[in-house]
Amino acid sequence: MSTESRIQIETKNLNVSFHDHVVLQNIDIKIPAKKLTAIIGPSGCGKTTLLKSFNRLLEIQDDVKIAGQILVDGKNILRPHLDVPDIRKKMGLLSQKPYPLPMSIRDNVAYGLRIHSNKNKDEIEKTVEHCLQEVGLWNEVKGRLHDPASQLSVGQQQRLCLARAIAVEPEVVLCDEPTSALDPLAAQQIEKLLLKLKKDYTVVLVTHTLRQAKRVADYVIFLYFGMVIEQGPADIFFNNPKNPETKAYLSGEIS
């Protein structure tokens, strides 16, 4: 990791279990700010769990135990009595499948704005347009902002979800295999957007396709059976991995 880069998210000895089944063990990672960090590993290795621990989304499920520390900008977000919605607001989420809220296209983007800011109607309208422009959706939807968001194509829905996420001005965008449900063209659009986003946001991308990680990542974290095997800058990770398991994964021997 280059020295000038600030650490946005850091975990210390993070352990997560569901129903007494250990999913993440002793996770110590550092995620640099305003870079794209890819979390890779075979399915079921805990990538999504790790991602959702960053904005405390794990705890809405039953029987989850979380121990250790997650430092966001140096502050442990697992401390009790914190304003959880405020933590989540700083981290936008893009999930595997797009989940537009059951409302119009415009209201989807305005949803978070109306909750957090006391912007007036015109300002909200402007922000909605700006966010939709950012994700390249404005020209496709400007004539039907009042239509239900569910009428959009899946690829458009995913971009809408991204617009919804960035509308509340988060610092981090968490992406959980955001292209896995999309056709190649739509996937490419999302990938391009992620590369654009990392100028302004810290992007964390969970992906199970190595090629995608190679294309976009600045920094890579390799998880295997709930443990961090190796992490480091992408060029070193891909060209000169140290761990034998990383080598095996990169060469396709384990998947």
Binding site: N55, P85, K89, S95, Y99, G112
Partner: peptide, 18 residues
């Protein structure tokens, strides 16, 4: 209702009641 729809709302900083 899928968990992910709740996550979508919570992740923009909505409270549970919202």
């Amino acid at each position: 209702i899928p968990l992910s729809l709740r996550e979508a709302s919570l992740s923009v900083g909505a409270t549970k009641w919202e």
